[in-house]
Design a protein around this nucleic acid. Structure first.
Lengths: 152, 152
DNA sequence: ACAGCGAGGTTCGAATTTGAACAACCGCGT
DNA sequence: ACGCGGTTGTTCAAATTCGAACCTCGCTGT
């Protein structure tokens, strides 16, 4: 506990900016998705990842890692989506324990309807607010931040 | 409902980087604070804001806005901190409805003990990962993102 | 003075989240 | 073959979050 290297002005500004932007953006998108598509952000992300995967299906554990959420949390949300017919579970043929989350037609359809509004919101709150240079630095810098934490 | 403007590669990289970094950083800090100080991140933030305020006290609504949380959420967390003697409530003299959240000595003390480890973690996951130029862009760009959402 | 509009906080119920505990199972090494 | 450590997904209780309803009260216009 000998070296409290505090943050200087620039570091503090970056950190606080990051914190505030994270919270506000998350809050805004949560609301937008709820209003326009009846989905929570975690649920929307599940659909997005499934839609991007081959055959629209991903193993539960793998999906939980991509979504950066707990396994139990994913079990719950997939359950919710399953009740609404947007996702379905499929047993893994090669591993009895394994379970695939599979995007249904209804799920894919809802995603198609929800995506435009969501992208528009993402543009409004972040992408269209910044210029190309800023976007490039964001991608580079935050990409590295994420990558490091992914390993740890 | 005309054709939506999808995100190009750079925009997508920036957005995904932002999302992943937000989640992973939040998750990491949450864990760090819980382990080393027995505080959740929202709780830590409450202490920080109070410590930075004149007389270590802030009105509930004002505090909720700064923390970017709901009023009811703040009521709950202040309740938790109060039970632990880290914060105390004080009636507002000029407005009977008003309530100040006040940092206690114990709260200030715990914050002093928790801060070094927290700052170290912030450095480890974000600040020390980036160079000065990147920090400057982050501060500028995300500052603007936050500012816009604050108004809306 | 006073009615009405809104702000300030809390309370309430419903929805989520997390980690720990569990049960079942895979597959490597001997 | 067989034992065991490590995985997989779910269940469970506890903690947290949110928004809506609510009550009290401050402020403004008349």
């Amino acid at each position: 506990m000998n070296e409290p290297r505090w943050l200087d002005e620039l570091e503090m500004a970056a950190w606080q900016g990051f914190l505030e932007a994270s919270n506000r953006v998350a809050r805004r998108l949560e609301q937008q998705l709820k209003d326009e598509a009846g989905l929570s952000h975690p649920q929307y992300e599940i659909l997005v990842h499934l839609a991007a995967a081959p055959d629209g299906e991903i193993r539960m554990t793998e999906l939980a890692e991509r979504l950066i959420t707990s396994k139990s949390g994913l079990t719950y949300q997939v359950g919710q989506l399953e009740r609404r017919g947007l996702v379905r579970r499929r047993a893994c043929p090669t591993d009895v324990r394994g379970v695939f989350a599979v995007l249904t037609d209804a799920g894919r359809e809802l995603l198609h309807r929800a995506a435009p509004g969501h992208v528009a919101a993402v543009r409004e709150v972040l992408v269209d607010v910044l210029d190309r240079d800023q976007l490039a630095v964001l991608a580079e810098a935050l990409g590295e931040v994420g990558r490091r934490l992914r390993r740890a």
